[in-house]
């Protein structure tokens, strides 16, 4: 069950994993992008964590809303509006308290904002299989890992990496990796009913 408390715990954990992997995300982005995805994400999650410290929340909806605004106003680049849109859409349906509904709304927010679909080598290639697995009640760490690895053979057709064409093949998409951290953090909490 999604609660206000475990939502904060989930996203706090996400923030911690992002911060720990800042250099790795930058490294992934420097191979097929411009090397800033880790720095961008860290600016965002630090602002989010500062808000969590300063605020009391009554509902998960407010947690998502505050997260959306923090990420949107601090990340910049392509991933800022994408994560911002995801959490904004999640906030809109948070009152259902249903994780599948909520994450699917987030995924649709990303698709709408970025006008991308699966197999374009973006974060969508992690969000989509994760939502699917959640709906089938079998999200595991290995499903998340597989989704990340599956971005390797793809050729990027959206975002900065698309300018590399064939040369984008063989690398992990950095946004797919940062999204994987979001779902690893989710697994670490007690949000998923077993």
């Amino acid at each position: 069950m999604l609660t206000t408390e475990n939502t904060v715990q989930w996203l706090t954990k996400f923030g911690e994993i992002i911060s720990m992997n800042k250099a790795y995300l930058n490294e992934l982005d420097s191979r097929i992008g411009d090397g800033d995805h880790g720095s961008n994400m860290v600016r965002g999650v630090e602002a989010m964590l500062a808000q969590f410290e300063a605020m009391e929340f009554n509902h998960a909806k407010d947690v998502f809303k505050v997260t959306a605004m923090a990420l949107l106003s601090k990340i910049g680049g392509a991933s800022g509006p994408l994560y911002g849109s995801a959490f904004m859409e999640m906030a809109k349906v948070a009152e259902t308290n249903d994780l599948v509904t909520i994450l699917t709304a987030g995924l649709n927010g990303i698709k709408k904002r970025g006008k991308a679909e699966v197999n374009e080598k973006t974060m969508i290639d992690v969000w989509e299989p994760v939502c699917q697995a959640l709906a089938e009640n079998n999200l595991t760490k290995s499903i998340i890992d597989q989704a990340v690895q599956a971005t390797k053979p793809l050729k990027a057709t959206k975002g900065r990496a698309s300018y590399l064409g064939e040369r984008s093949i063989g690398e992990i998409d950095p946004g797919a990796m940062s999204s994987a951290y979001l779902f690893e953090a989710l697994l670490a909490g007690e949000l998923i009913d077993g």
Partner: peptide, 11 residues
């Protein structure tokens, strides 16, 4: 016309 610029300005 960059993905990031377009999306941030659009929002």
């Amino acid at each position: 016309n960059y993905t990031g610029d377009v999306m941030n300005f659009e929002m």
